[in-house]
Write a protein that binds this DNA or RNA. Structure first.
Lengths: 129, 129
DNA sequence: GTAACTGCAAAATATTTGCATCCTT
DNA sequence: AAGGATGCAAATATTTTGCAGTTAC
């Protein structure tokens, strides 16, 4: 299971790191300078997530969005405890720096907490209606 | 835009109300006593959500799950402020009675807060590996 | 050279749309 | 009878799988 460095992987990582919002597979494809196949991008994202390099967030429409992790993540310790905000109009999904409180529930063991805030972003706020 | 009462609508509502977990369109179809078309079920759920009768929650896999609302919701005031827990193995998604704190973020106006907890439920906890 | 990786085609999954027909009011 | 609701077929959207060919190490 050794890991190899390819142009496609580099490209995807560059795109993710040069964006401050989370991106869908489509958006990543569009932004790639060296074109890659859609399937390859999906597979790269899957591996990156497994390695703790990116976070995967599910948007309100059920689509996946990806963002590069901060320094505090690796394969063994995924600290995906930050919240996300998605605009209901333009669908842009971004990380939000808020402290998440892990709720204590008795019924089950909670591994992970995803908080998705939604509303209208600055850009879309004025254009409603 | 008057609203009509049909066997299919009644059926879907009965299924939702007799379950204490949120259900996918598929699960609803399976549980319907009077069979209905898949598309019809999707349309009914869409209308129910618009009327404030059901909540729609997006699971970790990007699928939609539906649960009947409590008394505190109507068409104008959707109070979907409770959290949900989804099991990573069996995918069962249930409502959890925890108080949600609406985080204060400066950048955007937040209308809605979705909290999705995940881990392994009581049933699946023992069966891992 | 070998195994990881890529790309193409096709499949799988979830949901939506168009349209003719049905049935509630 | 009017028009909201249903059902069928087909389309759309997103993601996954199989497999042959390519490439990093």
């Amino acid at each position: 299971m050794e890991k190899r460095n390819t142009k496609q992987k580099q490209g995807v990582m560059e795109v993710l790191q040069s964006n401050d919002v989370a991106l869908s597979a489509d958006e990543i494809l569009e932004q790639l300078s060296t074109k890659a196949n859609r399937v390859t991008v999906y597979r790269i994202l899957e591996r990156f997530e497994k390695e703790g390099l990116v976070h995967k967030v599910i948007g309100l429409e059920g689509k996946s969005y990806y963002a590069s992790c901060g320094e505090h993540c690796d394969e063994h310790d995924h600290q995906d405890m930050h919240a996300h905000f998605q605009c209901k109009k333009c669908k842009t999904l971004e990380c939000v720096d808020v402290e998440i409180v892990r709720p204590r529930i008795s019924q089950h063991h909670v591994d992970e907490v995803q908080v998705l805030l939604s509303g209208y972003c600055q850009n879309c706020k004025g254009e409603i209606g």
